[in-house]
Design a binder for these strands. Structure first.
Lengths: 132, 132
DNA sequence: GCGCGTTATGATACTTTCTGCATATCGGTG
DNA sequence: CACCGATATGCAGAAAGTATCATAACGCGC
């Protein structure tokens, strides 16, 4: 159980169990910044997609498992940082309101999907080559 | 300057300036986890390399621009999570003490470099293809 | 016009992480 | 043995990011 060290030196902290590098997992993340601030990421993409799918920011937030407040804030952040509208919102009305993506948002999503596609898989492959 | 919206609907917030998607920058990050906790990353790699280069955790921390406390903590974290020694430390002595990487750390660094090499460049390339 | 569901937004609390400071220990050297 | 410089570690406070709560506005239908 104890790790062997150079003779004559004793451990200051408890010995650590030797590991076979098992169950290590590679992780990767990409995003897009403007002036050092995030404007698009996998999470934000998922949120935008949920908005497109449900037609509602409130429903999208619930789908994503985050408070409406947070979802709204993230959208506003991206919009301000990009200097463009991503969501076209309708406040009030029969159903209370609705949200849909702007053309700019759809364009951005399309480009971002191209950018991010397969990156995670590549890292996984690299990991298998280097660590297995 | 103002974004055009569907006629008859007025903006709730100030109009946003249209953007040409200029000066967007792709960013990427990879790391390795065990049980959902970080054990290696670019930052940790740089720290380990600084330790190897300087032979001292204190000097490495200064080189990295972080307090000794933080550097030490990160090393301990990785060691505990991995279940192996990464740094072989000498406390006291003529020069006050020293630190050097274990074989396990060198092995891990070697593998991690292989894993991470060129990922950032690939993302840059992808970005140019998708956004330019 | 009242209710309902949604967008919009401020204020506050909470969580997690990082930083700063303080203190102890270690072990050669003068 | 006292000193020095480095490791080792606790703890309180700062800072950043997120969640919670509360409230207002909106606009259609009954």
């Amino acid at each position: 159980m104890a790790n062997e060290l150079a003779p004559g030196r004793k451990l200051k902290t408890r010995d650590l169990a030797p590991s076979d590098l098992a169950d290590l997992k590679p992780r990767s993340k990409i995003w897009i910044e403007r002036s050092g601030e995030v404007v698009m990421s996998d999470w934000r993409m998922a949120l935008l997609e949920a908005i497109a799918r449900t037609g509602s920011l409130a429903k999208a937030a619930e789908e994503m498992g985050v408070p409406y407040r947070s979802a709204w804030q993230k959208i506003k952040e991206s919009e301000e940082r990009l200097g463009m509208r991503l969501v076209d919102t309708q406040c009030g009305g029969a159903d209370g309101g609705s949200s849909q993506l702007t053309e700019a948002a759809n364009d951005l999503l399309f480009r971002y999907r191209q950018l991010s596609e397969g990156i995670s898989e590549l890292v996984d492959k690299r990991f298998r080559e280097s660590f297995c």
